[in-house]
Amino acid sequence: MNSDPASSSFSDPQAVARYAEGPPRTVPGFASLHRMTTLLLAERVPATGRVLVLGAGGGLELKAFATVHSGWSFDGVDPSSEMLGLAQRTLGPHAPRVRWRQGTIEAAPHGPFDGATCLLTLHFLSRAERRKTLAELHRRLAPGAPLVVAHLSMPSEEEGRSVWFSRYASFAVASGVESAKASTAGAAMRKHLTILSPEEDELALHEAGFSGVSLFYAGFAFRGWVAYA
């Protein structure tokens, strides 16, 4: 999913049509994040494995996974029907390999899955929703299966947080986003998203039952971890 805090835009047809333009301009190393996620999954997901993708709207990570691993099948879950429609179009010939589910984690089958991802999504959830979501992800994974997550994560203190939001905006502007729009997006994130510190993010994974929690990605305001059920 997108890092845009205005989640209502996921039902706006014009915003959905422009979705693919957004993440590469605001998330440092966006394509490499997908490549690394694919490699981390492949360490443990078998050739004919089943992968749960939570926050699958848009289909960008699904396309990255499906293109490299022809034997994998997927369950793609997202609350926005419009974004799921975009994902199906994005996947093209790979779309039949995905079981599409509209909703939150509760809409996902019980598995067990061989791996799961939740990219650029958890910062949309409250602390309580995040705890529940991580626990439900853990419950749906086979023992030892990998979970890969990535989202906004930065220090809790105001001074440190301001520095990272400034860097977020600078990267967006350097990628072609208008300065005013980048500043507005940063302000909206501060107001609407639940952004934990890296320490809190790791603790949340441990509390959900995951082990082997390791940071594998850091791109200015964004961080990503791999953990195992």
Results as ranks from 00 to 15, higher is better:
Asp78Met: 05
Arg130Gly: 06
Phe30Ser: 10
Ser170Cys: 14
Leu137Lys: 03
Glu158Tyr: 01
Ser166Val: 08
Phe10Glu: 11
Leu91Arg: 03
Tyr168Phe: 15
Ala182Asn: 09
Pro112His: 00
Ala221Tyr: 02
Gly29Asn: 04
Leu122Met: 04
Val16Thr: 01
Ala42Gln: 06
Cys118Gln: 09
His110Lys: 13
Ala15Thr: 01
Val173His: 04
Glu207Ile: 05
Glu157Asn: 14
Gln102Asn: 02
Ser179Asp: 15
Gly92Val: 00
Arg18Pro: 02
Glu21Gln: 15
Arg140Phe: 09
Phe113Trp: 11
Gly111Gln: 09
Leu84Asn: 13
Ala204Leu: 10
Glu178Leu: 14
Pro96Ile: 07
Pro24Asn: 07
Gly219Ser: 00
Gly209Val: 01
Ser3Asn: 12
Arg101Glu: 12
Arg130Met: 12
Arg99His: 11
Ala47Met: 08
Leu205Ser: 02
Tyr168Arg: 02
Ser183Arg: 15
Ala169Leu: 05
Glu106Ile: 00
Gly186Phe: 06
Ser170Arg: 15
Gln14Lys: 12
Thr38Met: 00
Val226Asn: 01
Trp100Ser: 08
Pro143Gly: 05
Glu157Leu: 09
Arg44Ala: 11
Ala188Val: 10
Met83Gln: 13
Gly176Asp: 14
Asp114Met: 06
Ile105Gln: 06
Leu125Met: 13
Arg99Ala: 14
Val68His: 09
Pro23Lys: 03
Gly55Phe: 05
Tyr19Asp: 02
Ala182Cys: 09
Ser11Ile: 12
Arg101Asp: 07
Leu60Met: 13
Leu120His: 06
Gly176Glu: 13
Ala66Met: 05
Ser214Asp: 07
Gly176Asn: 14
Asp201Ser: 08
Met1Leu: 07
Asn2Trp: 09
Ser179Arg: 15
Asp75Phe: 06
Glu202Val: 13
Asp78Arg: 07
Arg50Ala: 11
Ala17Tyr: 02
Arg50Ser: 11
Lys132Asp: 15
Ser214Glu: 12
Trp100Ile: 03
Thr121Leu: 14
Ser11Glu: 15
Arg140Ser: 08
Leu86Cys: 10
Ser126Val: 06
Thr133Lys: 02
Tyr217His: 08
Met189Ser: 13
